[in-house]
Design a protein around this nucleic acid. Structure first.
Lengths: 222, 222
DNA sequence: CGCTGAATTGACGGACATCAAGATGTGTGG
DNA sequence: CCACACATCTTGATGTCCGTCAATTCAGCG
């Protein structure tokens, strides 16, 4: 069961019924590692925030929808990243897998209970939220820049978070990137080709990118 | 000294030398109330975050600069709001008064020390950061909308935070609003007049605004 | 009053969205 | 292994919203 790709909903509720395949995360998260197939919801906006999550492999996006159908992706989470931490009792955004992923799921109540005793854990939750705040602020800054600058910044951000060596591996689609950067898929694509033509990057495949001129990209990342 | 308008820098450093005019804030902040003249820096980006602040009267803006001179205002703080809380040891943005203001200033180390004993205070700091995160996320959402939608959202936000009754009092200039919304001062101005012409609002003065058709504004605030 | 900064208004251009078509890649079944 | 279908990505033509540049009006204050 845990090794099969299943829908997020089913998995979360199934989890309690399954002998936990426990793993220790950097937060000291106790929980079960679960597998999710790509494009599956992990939790929805306004749902009770009963669990904390850590990406083991794969990638996750969190997003909010505007009523007219526009989607704003607020964050991508890569292996090691913790998400789903809320100070209130419900989620402020939805979370979905970008690709097949393994997620460590921990009961929030258990973590919070431990935080009562371990002062350090409480502080870590705060630091986690503060780091998230910082990330969102950077993202806000990006949204007032030009398309060129946003895409350059995105590539550098992804490179910085990437474990791989030479090339930047993008797990997400152009549409995801567009919704993250507040652009259209066409503008993202055109900017990529423009970067290729000016020798700043080269595409091994559409999702595998070599940065050829970091200086130029950094200059754009004003 | 404390009652005279002085530069922020001078005030902060002078503060320790002055018998503290203490006041109790909602956070249980112990500190001195200080007066700042308008457009004065309270702290700068990257400076050590040695104090926490609460607006008593007036208004404060926090912002970050891009190297090309663009300014992104990340938040406005009105009476009652706490600002300057960081999980790290330095400020991530600069803070300035929008107009003459009274600010309650509390030593961070003292608050943090008390948080060690009082579990509740530590939690409050976390909630404060989480609320800030939520605000920034809302702001991010706004930045992908049209000019009309951003301005409508801004007016509704300011109305919601305003203590006054009928009219919305804007302490900040058009330039501040523009830098907050990621627009130009001209676009903000044009959008206001457009709202006036369509009967959504009316201007008592350029900084005092009546909302005449909240339904229409809410519709824009998608 | 006149001076100064703030706000408004107008004319114009450019960056990005929209609409539309084509190319490339990927998975599936024969 | 190939062929077909479908999703993803790229490219092109056109439109529009908002930024830029410039002038004018308005408001506060000595």
């Amino acid at each position: 069961m845990l090794t099969a790709a299943v829908t997020a909903k089913a998995s979360i509720y199934a989890r309690a019924a399954v002998p936990a395949d426990s793993t220790e995360g950097p937060l000291g998260l106790m929980g079960a590692v679960m597998r999710f197939a790509r494009n599956n919801e992990i939790y929805g906006e306004h749902e009770p925030a009963d669990y904390l999550y850590q990406v083991i492999s794969g990638a996750v996006r969190t997003y909010r929808m505007l009523d007219d159908g526009r989607r704003q992706i607020t964050s991508f989470y890569l292996p090691g990243d913790v998400f789903g931490v809320e100070a209130g009792d419900s989620h402020l955004s939805s979370a979905e897998t970008v690709c097949d992923a393994q997620i460590l799921v921990a009961k929030r109540s258990a973590v919070m209970a431990r935080a009562e005793h371990e002062r350090n854990l409480g502080r870590q939750l705060w630091v986690l939220t503060a780091r998230e705040l910082q990330r969102v602020q950077e993202h806000s800054l990006a949204l007032i820049k030009s398309a060129e600058e946003r895409v350059a910044g995105f590539l550098l951000e992804m490179e910085g978070r990437n474990t791989a060596g030479a090339a930047v591996e993008l797990p997400m689609s152009r549409q995801d990137i567009a919704d993250y950067l507040g652009l259209t898929i066409e503008t993202v694509s055109r900017t990529f080709t423009q970067f290729v033509q000016s020798g700043k990057i080269s595409l091994e495949t559409s999702r595998r990118i070599q940065l050829r001129n970091r200086a130029a990209l950094n200059r754009l990342n004003a």
